[in-house]
Amino acid sequence: MQVQFREVDTFSLWVWFELHQSPSEEDLELLDAVLSSWFMIGRLGGYNTMNLQAMYAGNETVSFMNYDHEHSDSAFQATFHDMGSLEHKGKWCRCWFNLGTADELALDVLINALINFSRENVGITHCFIGGVNKEWPVPTMQVSVV
Score class of each variant (00 low, 15 high):
Q4D: 05
F5T: 14
R6I: 02
R6E: 01
E7R: 07
V8R: 00
V8L: 03
D9K: 05
T10C: 05
L13P: 02
L13K: 01
W14R: 01
W14Y: 07
V15G: 10
F17S: 04
P23F: 03
P23C: 06
P23S: 08
S24K: 13
E25Y: 10
E26C: 03
D27T: 11
L28A: 13
E29F: 15
L31T: 12
L31F: 09
A33D: 11
A33F: 01
L35T: 03
S36F: 00
S37N: 07
W38F: 10
W38Y: 13
M40T: 14
M40G: 06
I41M: 13
I41L: 12
G42I: 08
L44E: 09
L44F: 06
G46N: 04
Y47H: 08
N48E: 07
N48A: 09
M50Q: 10
M50E: 01
M50K: 12
L52I: 10
L52V: 12
Q53G: 00
Q53H: 04
A54H: 03
M55Y: 04
Y56V: 03
Y56I: 09
Y56K: 01
A57L: 00
G58H: 05
N59G: 15
E60L: 15
E60P: 13
F64A: 15
Y67P: 03
D68Y: 13
D68W: 12
D73T: 02
D73Q: 08
S74G: 08
A75D: 00
Q77M: 11
A78E: 05
F80N: 08
D82A: 11
M83N: 01
G84Y: 00
G84W: 00
S85G: 08
E87Q: 14
H88I: 00
K91I: 13
C93V: 04
R94W: 12
C95S: 03
N98I: 08
L99E: 07
T101Y: 02
T101V: 01
A102K: 03
D103E: 12
D103Q: 13
L105I: 12
L105Q: 04
A106P: 01
D108V: 15
I111K: 12
N112F: 01
L114E: 00
N116Y: 14
E120S: 14
N121Y: 02
V122S: 08
V122P: 06
G123Y: 07
I124N: 09
T125V: 13
H126E: 10
C127L: 14
I129Q: 02
I129R: 05
G131P: 07
K134N: 07
K134E: 13
E135M: 11
W136A: 11
P137F: 13
P137A: 14
P137Y: 08
T140Y: 10
T140C: 11
T140A: 11
Q142S: 04
Q142K: 03
V143I: 14
V143T: 14
